[in-house]
Design a protein around this nucleic acid. Structure first.
Lengths: 116, 116
DNA sequence: CGGTTAATTAACCAATCCGTAAAATAATCC
DNA sequence: GGATTATTTTACGGATTGGTTAATTAACCG
């Protein structure tokens, strides 16, 4: 139902194991077994997490002998950053107060200006 | 099972309807009915989406007569921005190596193409 | 009070998610 | 070829998600 790219990326990031995997990969390419090391989880579980990350374009996988080294791919994170950036003013406190003021003003206009 | 805050935020953002709701709220506080307007979806569905956003702290709701106006709350988005920012170098790099990336992608398509 | 409007809750369903154990694949080494 | 190592696939649960309709709550209005 949800084929859109940004949703896939956000969904992939909505899991602490997967974010931890990305954090590990940020310090360099490595194998699945090594990635699985810190987690109390079976290999197939990790393998599935990697598939989710791969489908979101957050990692890419190579092949060296029987190892399948993973590396991080930053592009989707860039898209997330771009999306989030549109809302920057909302977490900037000084602008928060301004926004509150504007919303109040708008409500007043609505009340005075037309019947609803 | 996944009670960590960042995961909850990412999960809340992993839905185009909810992101559209946030986009609408970015231009000002409004009622549930008005929020529901652009979507081909029943009110309870919207109500559930709002609950997800509220639990993630992405919106707050007030009460004015029988209306329950929603407004956007930026703090969780700030946390997302902060998290994502740690990976900035990876999408800068991928931008620098765009050609390389495209070549790899092409090779991969060639290799995996028959599977799908 | 009774009727209308706004929104949520309850009950349900199908699909997806996150994990498991067991079997299968793939490449390497002897 | 056969054993070993690395990883994925399959099959299966149980929990969660995203939607529905019908019923309910809450506040207003006359």
């Amino acid at each position: 139902m949800r084929h859109d790219h940004l949703s896939t990326t956000f969904a992939a990031l909505a899991d602490p194991t997967r974010r931890a995997i990305l954090a590990r990969l940020a310090s360099g390419e490595t194998s699945v077994t090594e990635l699985a090391q810190p987690f109390e989880m079976t290999m197939p579980a990790i393998s599935k997490h990697l598939k989710v990350l791969e489908r979101a374009g957050l990692i890419a996988r190579g092949r060296q002998a029987q190892w399948r080294p993973c590396r991080i791919e930053g592009r989707p994170l860039g898209e997330v950053a771009e999306w989030v950036e549109h809302y920057r003013r909302f977490w900037d406190e000084s602008f928060d107060r301004l926004d509150e003021y504007l919303v109040e003003l708008k409500a007043k206009e609505k009340k005075d200006g037309r019947h609803e």
